[in-house]
Nucleic acid binder design. Sequence first.
DNA 1: CAGTTTGTGTGCTTATACCAAACAAATACC
DNA 2: GGTATTTGTTTGGTATAAGCACACAAACTG
Lengths: 269, 269
Amino acid sequence: MRLQMTKPSSPRTMKTVATSWEIIHTLEKLQGAGVTELANHLDMPKGTVYTHLATLVEQKYVVKQDEKYHLGLHFLSLGEFVKRNNVLFKAGRSEVERLAEETDEYVHLVTEEHGELIYLHEVRGQNAVGKEYFEKKLEQTGYLHSSAYGKAMLAYLPEARVEEIIEKSGLPQRTEKTITSRNKLFDELETIREQGYAQNDEEEIFGTRAVGAPILDENETVIGAISLTKPTSRLQGDEFHERVPALVTSAANVIEVNIQTMKNEQINY
Amino acid sequence: MRLQMTKPSSPRTMKTVATSWEIIHTLEKLQGAGVTELANHLDMPKGTVYTHLATLVEQKYVVKQDEKYHLGLHFLSLGEFVKRNNVLFKAGRSEVERLAEETDEYVHLVTEEHGELIYLHEVRGQNAVGKEYFEKKLEQTGYLHSSAYGKAMLAYLPEARVEEIIEKSGLPQRTEKTITSRNKLFDELETIREQGYAQNDEEEIFGTRAVGAPILDENETVIGAISLTKPTSRLQGDEFHERVPALVTSAANVIEVNIQTMKNEQINY
DNA sequence: CAGTTTGTGTGCTTATACCAAACAAATACC
DNA sequence: GGTATTTGTTTGGTATAAGCACACAAACTG
């Protein structure tokens, strides 16, 4: 007689679907792979991997090219769909573009999901710095503690939620100025709430500073954040503490109003 | 005794994964839905749908908001990843941007997968027309027969492949000028091969014309296509038959060279 | 505060995903 | 160029896990 593995876990969850996503993520990491290669990486029988791949090909989410299996471009269409139907994106897009045009710098619109940072929109102004860095970011999810937009969101998230997030993700160091201590972070969030905006002083990329403002709904719930990034040399003194914060918080405000308007219209299409 | 449902079908495929994607696509179509709503739409027991949703939430691809389940923003990151690692996107991006800058019109970079049209990049020049139309397209896959880029690709696909695609997708009419007959299409493709570029004369959107050129690799295999769209009033005579075709084919050429260069370098990162 | 309708949780059963092992096809090796 | 190795593909049997029906809970409706 076999001992019960006591796994009463509810809600139940589907093992087959989970391994299907494991395969997708491995294909992502390996930038395409063969059946055997995948089977080794995942420690699964070849036959199983093969059947999974056949299913994903049938679903048009995987393609076979050059003797390897790759993630298909249908993920792109799906991603675009999700983005373009996102309330914050719809409400914030034009404002982000306006601010980038006005300042000629990098402007970002971000949100949070499952404790991770997600980039909804970015516009690179004429003088923007950090291109190589930000270009890579779009395809990843990121941490919340080392950026102006991230901290702006953390500051207005319920404290329990913040605890949960730093518990799960940690506070990895990016530069020597990154906040890596729990207490310092909470102090910082307090300051942000007092100011109404967040500052990033070379905490993520050396040589760049940024100012970010939260975007809240009518119940003070965080929807996302907007931020403007500049090289440290161009973001000092009043510019860092007055002028850019004013621009960014005002943009955040416009977006908040847009969201309200959209909600009131209720007409989705 | 039960009759065997004779389904020897190989390769085998996973029913559970297929229904998981069915749920994802239904969530897409319904723009978010509840458990019961989904169960009705898909004609499945509530319990099953619930377990599937729980799995997708665990995987972070579905979120529960406002008492409804929605597709999560992780699809966005995945989509960005797939796009940014696509050879054609990497090779063609800058050239698309250059051409849009030079001409101030709409420029598109597209490819084909599973017989469907996929948009890899679009840049809207200052004078570009058709914004409302193209904005919607990015989140969909489309047909190949009613556009300059689509026809450019069809012209260089193996005939068997073309047959297969029109067999599966049909030749739906978009405007009164859309090619809807198999024979006319094959004549058109012949012309395109002779010219080296494709023209779209209000076959998709009334009032706009376009010129598209295929992007081929060293074995003459189609990788994708690039096109330029203008209002009919600005795309006539020599402009339609000489100048724009020259610009577009030359851009296609540059991209072809870029692909070759990337392949020779072999260094991916 | 009854009556619906929603989401969530649970055992049972059968379909099905998994595995092992065999086969085929392509590549590498000598 | 023929053998050996590695790859992808296929198959049958089996244990398991996905699906179903049902029950429960919780929220909304009137």
